[in-house]
Nucleic acid binder design. Sequence first.
DNA 1: TATTATTTGAAACATATGTTTTAAATACAC
DNA 2: GTGTATTTAAAACATATGTTTCAAATAATA
Lengths: 215, 215
Amino acid sequence: MDQQAPVTQGDPGKDSVRDRLLDAAEALFCERGFDGVSVRDLTGQANCNVAAVNYYFGGKDKLYQEMFRRQVQEICYRQIARINEAMGVPNPTLESVLREIVFMPLLAAYEKQQRGRIMRLMVREVLNKTVHGETILEAFHTQMMTHAVQALRTLVPQLDDKQARLAVFSVDSLKVHPFLFMDEFFAVNTGINFDEMVNHIVFFAAAGIRAMAAK
Amino acid sequence: MDQQAPVTQGDPGKDSVRDRLLDAAEALFCERGFDGVSVRDLTGQANCNVAAVNYYFGGKDKLYQEMFRRQVQEICYRQIARINEAMGVPNPTLESVLREIVFMPLLAAYEKQQRGRIMRLMVREVLNKTVHGETILEAFHTQMMTHAVQALRTLVPQLDDKQARLAVFSVDSLKVHPFLFMDEFFAVNTGINFDEMVNHIVFFAAAGIRAMAAK
DNA sequence: TATTATTTGAAACATATGTTTTAAATACAC
DNA sequence: GTGTATTTAAAACATATGTTTCAAATAATA
């Protein structure tokens, strides 16, 4: 019958059952993925009845999508804001901007913050090729790419559009891979610390970009 | 009772039920992951009875681990062989070795070959932090790292051990990220083709490494 | 207060799934 | 060929899971 919950009557703000469910979804899905969390896990964490998921969201799927969409959007805003901030200082250099882009995400992974887990979930969704991610993430990719390309070409005007896109992609590579596999790297390479890794990435990326510009 | 199937009596070589199940596991698990494949999916594809999974492997888990371990080992051998081959030619350059390392995996992803799917599954396992992957993949990481570091330091003797490890990690970044997100990149960046991407990656990585050596 | 709409709770439903059981079928050894 | 061990097959089991039902409780409205 495609029933949807009417706009809640009591306390539309916070700590309603609906909100508690979204919080639980964020905490649990990000940790264990869609299949790893049952509706009863969610309602247990949110301290509500099993039926609440279907009552408020129309199903586990819908709840997941709602939670996922929000998180991706927030990550998107945050990244763009970070680029803008780095470009906004008096004399932005390639290195200073790269550092700004790279540092926070890696720190989030290093310190195992919640936002780090969300990023991992995003990657999992892409790899799992679930229906959920696709449309949401496409917008994310285009938006991020155009914004980053524009910033890079301001910093290094010698680059044409194609070069800038490839460069942005490679910077992304140098950021995402350590983000995902940091634990594994440090486990194998004791004697290298977090700061050394960040410095290396910034240096390596800048060298690659400068070499592209010199071509 | 922890029963294990005795060494098969008939046709120990090929096309036994056991082998068909391993084939089915490789095909299905690599595509849909552990949770995405049911025992009945497997036995359906292998044309055998549901009980066969438990009879021959002692459970879905065990079958998965057996299949996963084999695949990872094969990938490991292949990668090391590739490095050796690239280093074995008369005058190996940094660029030629990098190209050798990068090209085949990316092509596998580009052409959506089976081996590409297996790599993706490996990444998924790491991200999912399932028990399955951990021990298997740790050996993989250490082995690959030491081998690659050795090769790189032969090519670029100015690098110390720490630098070489960071460089190898970054080359891995520049390879794995496109491997995983190639579709997404080409979807957003029409007008860039596969060869251009490979050339760029080799150039970018070499520039980064050369800059490290010059420090 | 009386009436209505919304929310909650417990139980039931339907189904998918990993595993086990049990007996028949098949291959092997003597 | 006979007896034994191995393999196959169908059914049953036990359980986990997403969803639905429906009545009671609660809040809103008049």
